[in-house]
């Protein structure tokens, strides 16, 4: 079984994610071998029903963002419901180390 596609949200339109956590996790992603998708802000994309959300939701995803309940319904609001199997890493509740443990290791 192939690894899920990684999607990182920067939450660039509001500072609700701790800066050190989102930087630490992005640095970790950048040191791993696996390609990833990164978006400036999932809320912003959901607000304008960005068609990219549907394309993303159509694949096996691991989303690195905020509270899973919020992420799930943000996609739904954009007519891009996530499969139940989608894994969501919550940067609002986890430390950098805890979040990185859930991601591919550095290359």
């Amino acid at each position: 079984m192939s690894a899920p596609r990684l999607l990182y949200c920067r939450c660039a339109y509001a500072q609700v994610l701790p800066q050190e956590v989102k930087d630490g996790v992005l640095r970790h992603l950048c040191s791993a071998a696996q390609p990833f998708e990164s978006v400036a802000d999932l809320c912003e994309m959901s607000a304008r029903r960005d068609p990219r959300l549907a394309e993303l939701a159509s694949s096996d995803l691991k989303i690195i963002a905020c509270h899973p309940r919020a992420v799930k319904w943000l996609f739904h609001a954009a007519n891009a419901p996530l499969p139940e199997s989608t894994e969501i890493v919550n940067l609002r509740s986890l430390s950098t180390a805890e979040a990185c443990q859930l991601l591919p290791p550095p290359a």
């Binding site: 920067r10 660039a12 339109y13 930087d23 992005l26 950048c30 390609p35 990833f36 998708e37 990164s38 978006v39 400036a40 802000d41 912003e44 994309m45 990219r52």
Partner: peptide, 14 residues
């Protein structure tokens, strides 16, 4: 990546 994301761009690393 951080600079582009903070400016509002989304990008894929591939």
């Amino acid at each position: 990546c951080a600079a582009l994301l903070d400016r509002g761009y989304s990008l894929s690393r591939a």
